[in-house]
Amino acid sequence: MQINVKIKRYNPEADARPYWAEYKLEARGSDRVLDVINHLKWEVDGTLAFRRSCAHGICGSDAMLINGVNRLACKVLVKDLGERITIEPIRGLPVLKDLIVDMEPFFDSYKAVLPFFINDDPPPPGERYQSAEDRAVFDETTKCILCAACTTSCPVFWTNGRYLGPAAIVNAHRFIFDSRDQGAAERLGVLNQANGLWRCRTAYNCTEACPRDIPITRAIEEVKRALLWRGA
């Protein structure tokens, strides 16, 4: 089928400001959006810049705003979008070139919540035991691939870039609810600060944007409850 693709372009070495470029091309319904922009880069305009690696929704490189919704370009097919496709960089992070944004602020927020296992007891010679039920409690939040689709779909984050954002809270959840971990109080302390958890206004954009189907809003609510009950 013939499709129309509009891409918000910006080359910092040539353009004063971003502009829209339009392309017409042949595509199959089963093509991923990543296949479409790869085709444009390889056959039409080599200067088009975007990140990509695994091409099947696991590495988290290619989150973009596609037809108004944050998605991974490798996980949405042309047939699910129709013949008009609009692609922009994800919002709220500085655009560096075309669809490439500066990910450093995003990773800084992630690192702020102590996203690593904390348990100072000497480990046993074998594994620490954990029941299948205890393991299931935080299963969903272990799926995060740090693509930033959630955080950059959040209206609070758009207006306040210092808000830690849903991805950071998801990763805090992954440890706070792990029965083996001992760092919950410290993490809840970080989340209880001005730009932490309470900035969430349950807009639900994050949940809708997550390519891994993590119930993010629910996870955020669970962390809020943990903060109220356990204190920080």
């Binding site: 990140r51 690696s53 695994c54 099947h56 696991i58 590495c59 988290g60 490189s61 990910m103 990773f107 691939i145 740090l146």
Partner: peptide, 10 residues
């Protein structure tokens, strides 16, 4: 790449 984009993740 960014470390978490590495293909071990697949």
């Amino acid at each position: 790449l960014y470390p978490t984009r590495s293909h071990t993740g697949a």
